[in-house]
Design a protein around this nucleic acid. Structure first.
Length: 318
RNA sequence: GCCUCGGUAGCUCAGCUGGUAGAGCAAGGGACUGAAAAUCCCUGUGUCGGUGGUUCGACUCCACUCUGAGGCA
């Protein structure tokens, strides 16, 4: 008997992960761990398509509503720590953990040894270099060329966030990012208590986009605007991390009078399509994912059945 | 029925006096190590409505034809 398995359902937004995961959790007697960078925030329900109490049908959900939108410093590291704790907790109760989500980096944090450099985010340093970049494009990248030429070569000068982070690591640890080796996706994480088993949900692009369109309309009808107003009224900064989420950013912009409602709605749809495309790109390179076409299978229940038999097969080593 | 103006990329359109096409938007592909629903990089995807003709050569000129909009009757 090898390591315990850690089961995953991944896929782009609006691909039906929530419905399938709940069906599947019922069959497996599993508890769900969300891998979604927006569902972690309390009060961000409609825009993040967070499953409501009734929709969860009694299945325990972890890593949902674990942070305040006013928080400035939520990060993958925190996600990783808490999620791994949840995994351990679930296993200790002889239940099965099922990770469900579309945030690729969060998923990778659970299946790879992402031994993040011990350089915590430095708000001051980030502000400094963001300013420098605003004044003169490329200045952060020039600085990085001195500190860590190899990373500078790998990163595009316009990719300011990564360039600044690389500087942060050098200045915070005296160590370069490139010295750590960048091939973590090649290694399995021996330190993880579980072996990952991944199922991906997909469907023809056209169909996915139609679902996104419908879903955004639903969010708007269910009161996304009011939700965003509430967040802003409660003191959440429009520039905060949480408010960069899809739908939230555009709605806040509309509320602040920077664009019309229709314009905001169209923008949310377009940006969500692009996001879904990026998610697909991210997950495509993970060759361990077994893909399930939910449309071809004929819906969430059938997909849950198919994934259940796949998981069972893997578990029994067939 | 006659006249006029259109028919070029998924959409809106550009293409000067002939040298097999280009912008915006949409879209596609990719990257991703403490911001990741973030951030960034790359890419034109086309029987130029159809058929003939003139020409070394036609999206461009001519004829016919199909089709859309408007005008006159």
């Amino acid at each position: 008997m090898g390591k315990a398995k850690l089961y995953f359902i991944v896929g782009p937004t609006a691909s039906g992960k929530t419905a399938v995961s709940i069906e599947l959790a019922q069959r497996m007697g599993a508890e769900i761990i969300s891998a979604d960078s927006i569902q972690i925030y309390r009060g961000m329900d409609i825009g993040s398509a967070k499953p409501g109490e009734d929709e969860r049908r009694g299945i325990p959900h972890h890593m949902i509503n674990v942070a305040s939108p006013a928080e400035k410093d939520y990060s993958v590291t925190r996600y990783r720590e808490s999620a791994l704790k949840a995994v351990a907790d679930i296993l200790s109760r002889d239940k099965t953990p099922l990770v469900v989500g579309g945030t690729g980096l969060y998923v990778n944090a659970l299946i790879y040894p992402l031994d993040f450099p011990a350089a915590p985010p430095d708000a001051e340093l980030r502000a400094h270099w963001n300013e420098a970049e605003a004044k003169e494009k490329g200045s952060a990248h020039r600085r990085l060329s001195q500190l860590d030429p190899e990373s500078a070569r790998r990163l595009h000068p316009n990719d300011v966030k990564r360039v600044i982070r690389a500087i942060e690591i050098c200045e915070g640890t005296g160590e370069t990012l490139s010295a750590r080796g960048a091939d973590f996706t090649r290694r399995d994480d021996e330190s993880l208590p579980c072996a990952p088993v991944l199922a991906g949900l997909t469907m023809p692009r056209e169909l996915l986009y139609a679902r996104i369109e419908r879903r955004v309309d639903e969010m708007l009808a269910f009161g996304l605007e009011d939700e965003v107003r509430r967040l802003l009224a409660s003191g959440v900064d429009p520039g905060s991390l949480a408010m960069q989420g899809l739908g939230y950013k555009q709605m806040a912009s509309h509320i602040l009078g920077r664009r019309g409602f229709e314009e905001a709605a169209e923008e949310i749809k377009r940006e969500t399509r692009r996001f879904a495309k990026r998610q697909l790109t991210w997950f495509r390179r993970e060759e361990r994912i077994r893909w399930f076409d939910i449309a071809a299978l004929g819906g969430a229940e059938a997909a849950a059945d198919a994934i259940y038999s796949y998981f069972t097969e893997v578990r029994d080593g067939r």
